[in-house]
């Protein structure tokens, strides 16, 4: 059973399916869930927002259009547009350096873009596990909307 959501991918499904995004560093995983209809999706995004001038590439690369695309897909599949809640994880800064560069702040910018996009779409953020300097693997349960976050050096996952 392949339930993996790879980099630059968004994927939707129904409970009891569990979607999984592995090895997130600065990337961010955004989970959307409609509790009433037990339908949801997970995206594994790289960049905060799509550039206005250059060609798109995959929409799932970008936090902003990745989220809005996933919302549309969910509504088409029968989700309630106003019933969606969101959870986010990832957005770390894997490299501790003494100087701040554009590269090592990308995680924080991904998290910021996710919060802003969700606010714009009026989707409440029900939980987050972001930032820090650790890698994460996320499991999103589409029956319950629970998100489990595994870190490399911790035995137990964090539940959000």
């Amino acid at each position: 059973m392949d339930n993996r959501v790879s980099i630059a991918q968004t994927r939707i499904g129904r409970g009891p399916e569990v979607l999984r995004a592995c090895g997130l560093g600065s990337c961010i995983a955004v989970g959307l869930f409609d509790p009433r209809n037990r339908i949801g999706g997970l995206g594994h995004m790289l960049l905060p927002s799509h550039p206005e001038d250059s060609p798109f590439g995959k929409a799932g690369k970008y936090v902003d259009i990745g989220i809005s695309g996933m919302v549309e897909e969910l509504v088409q599949a029968g989700a309630s547009r106003t019933g969606l809640v969101a959870k986010i994880a990832g957005g770390a800064n894997m490299f501790e350096t003494t100087y701040q560069t554009l590269i090592n702040s990308i995680g924080a910018r991904n998290a910021k873009s996710a919060r802003e996009t969700l606010a714009k779409l009026a989707i409440p953020l029900a939980g987050e596990e972001v930032g820090g300097n650790r890698g994460r693997t996320v499991e999103f349960d589409l029956a319950t909307g629970k998100m489990l976050v595994y870190c490399a050096r911790d035995e137990d996952p964090i539940l959000i």
Partner: peptide
């Protein structure tokens, strides 16, 4: 994790 190390 390898994924996290290289995603930058």
């Amino acid at each position: 994790m390898a994924g996290a190390v290289v995603d930058n």
